[in-house]
Nucleic acid binder design. Structure first.
Ligand SMILES: [Mn+2]
Ligand SMILES: [Mn+2]
Ligand SMILES: [Zn+2]
Ligand SMILES: [Zn+2]
Lengths: 142, 142
DNA sequence: CTTCATATTTAGAATAGTTCTTATTCCTTG
DNA sequence: CAAGGAATAAGAACTATTCTAAATATGAAG
């Protein structure tokens, strides 16, 4: 189990590595993402942060999420044109979008899978990232 | 080479299979997509359709594109939160988004690649579709 | 052919999610 | 303690898209 202070120290470290400050808002938002990893939207994060920090604004939530994405502590995930969702899972993984429930599941990828997929690229296509999105029906209990 | 009448007959067939009518607007929009396969946005399609049909409205372009997607004649493609792009390539393929130019390239997939990727899914995850998106630098001439 | 019912198109209003602007507050450093 | 930059907050603005409502086209039935 990762303690609260561990993760906020990790956060502070990453932020200062990027020349940014650690702030109460950034800490609350990162902790919200770590606490419930269900790929919340910015509005979801806003709602979850408010009880802990009633004066926080939606603009700040967007700013902080963007900052966390820039620091590579969080991934932004998009399905079609729905609201962006945020994911603190840094391991290489794909996303499964359950069309019945709207839920998003992480699909861990075996090592080498991403390279295997990149191998389909013709010569001189140089990919900095590969994203895999599944859509369908997920098991009820997952 | 696919003749204009061939493709508009194929379109008429697909539409009537879905209980829909073939209309001049739908034909123009489909032909615009076939003519230049650079993954245009709805606005791009609107601009390209106008010379042939000056009275066409943007709402109709959206309506027709949606119809073509429903009929499985066209794929809608999204990158982050940019405008939706439209692709008439029906073969299984991935997309490569060139971050320098903004261009989108089709990446043909060897047969079996999608099944290979689906094989990473844990039991009881039933995917109806798999989408693969690359991001990076494409060769200048492609 | 007409008539009628319905599908489609159109123009513009409305919407959702996000970004921008500006003023204020908060730190950090000298 | 200043000064200066960084960050936040509130609300306006923006973009792509969808919705609404009225007009038009189409096609089946008589
Ligand atoms: Mn997506
Ligand atoms: Mn996308
Ligand atoms: Zn995830
Ligand atoms: Zn394509």
């Amino acid at each position: 189990m990762v303690s609260n202070t561990d993760s906020s120290e990790a956060l502070a470290q990453r932020l200062s590595d990027s020349g940014l400050r650690s702030t109460p808002q950034r800490e609350v938002i990162y902790s919200v993402l770590l606490k419930k990893r269900d790929h919340p939207t910015a509005e979801d994060v806003f709602a979850r942060a408010k009880p802990e920090m009633p004066m926080i604004s939606l603009a700040t939530v967007y700013n902080c999420l963007e900052t966390l994405v820039q620091c590579d502590l969080v991934r932004a995930v998009n399905f079609e044109r729905g609201p962006t969702r945020y994911c603190p899972n840094l391991r290489p993984h794909a996303h499964f979008h359950d069309e019945a429930t709207g839920a998003t599941h992480d699909i861990e990828l075996p090592p080498g899978m991403l390279d295997q997929v990149k191998a389909v690229l013709p010569p001189h296509f140089d990919a900095t990232s590969v994203e895999i999105i599944f859509r369908g029906k997920a098991p009820s209990k997952a």
